[in-house]
């Protein structure tokens, strides 16, 4: 049990009266990539957004169940949400850099956590951009407004911004759905590298992508986790008929 990142049992979530997660039980191992697939509207985003409590921002959102990260209840009264979000980073579907310089985009997370020494900031900014495979493209233009970058570069900047605060886990909610194939390939490669040091959960619409990048896969359907297991097993020999139908493209 010690070597488990997320341990979730009977997670239920709703917006107002509308229940969208109906008892999810799942265990996520550290230093692995877990892909979540399923048709749109089945609750993948709701699930992943519950893990760093970013869904707390939505007033009608309610959640119950045991949602443990490193054996601690994420939704406990005592939980320091700020610290939780620092430890569990998130990259969103649409790249959302701040309308500031490339440098400031990354330094922001550090500043609000008390880093003030310029040399340290410079160092971490550079290291984060390198980890996100963006350094070579932007190293001469760190003062440039981040919104002038291409979509793919913006998304890698968002990854760098997340990495800067040294998280342990990374949540990706369809990070490539707004990107072209070349940028997508770059991000997939990046995820492959990051796996060594981080626990990664990625929601994706793209079955090939799930097969390429992940070690474990989960199939969501109408608020339930229909099947979960090793990616290889699920894609070659799905246990559930509905998973098979979805993977082979018969619906969704």
């Amino acid at each position: 049990m010690n070597n488990v990142a997320f341990n979730i049992t009977r997670m239920r979530a709703s917006y107002g009266n509308k229940e969208v997660l109906k008892g999810i039980t799942i265990t996520i191992l550290p230093n692995s990539v877990t892909a979540l697939i399923g048709p749109s509207g089945c609750g993948k985003s709701t699930f992943i957004r519950s893990l760093n409590r970013i869904n707390d921002l939505i007033p009608s959102f309610r959640i119950s169940g045991d949602i443990l990260y490193r054996q601690k209840d994420i939704y406990d009264q005592e939980t320091d949400v700020v610290e939780l979000r620092r430890r569990i980073g998130m990259v969103f579907q649409k790249p959302n850099p701040f309308p500031k310089s490339i440098y400031e985009n990354i330094a922001y997370g550090l500043r609000i956590h008390g880093f003030t020494i310029k040399e340290t900031l410079d160092e971490i900014v550079e290291a984060s951009l390198k980890k996100a495979a963006l350094w070579d493209e932007v190293k001469d233009n760190l003062k440039q407004n981040a919104l002038t970058l291409s979509g793919g570069q913006q998304q890698r900047l968002c990854i760098a911004r997340t990495l800067a605060t040294q998280p342990e886990a990374l949540l990706f909610d369809e990070p490539c759905s707004a990107l072209d194939p070349i940028s997508t390939a770059k991000i997939e490669e990046l995820i492959h590298h990051l796996k060594k040091s981080y626990t990664i959960i990625i929601v994706t619409h793209n079955m090939q992508q799930a097969a390429r990048v992940s070690d474990y896969s989960g199939f969501f359907l109408l608020g339930e986790l229909v099947e979960f297991g090793k990616t290889q097993d699920m894609f070659t020999a799905p246990k559930d008929k509905r998973t098979e139908d979805y993977i082979t493209g018969r619906f969704g």
């Binding site: 760093n52 921002l57 620092r86 980073g89 959302n96 701040f98 922001y108 997370g109 605060t165």
Partner: peptide, 21 residues
Amino acid sequence: FSIREASYAVGATKWQTVYFQ
């Protein structure tokens, strides 16, 4: 909203999000 989300996601508090972003 995505700008606010981005700020909260790196661990900012409400006033930091409002004041800095």
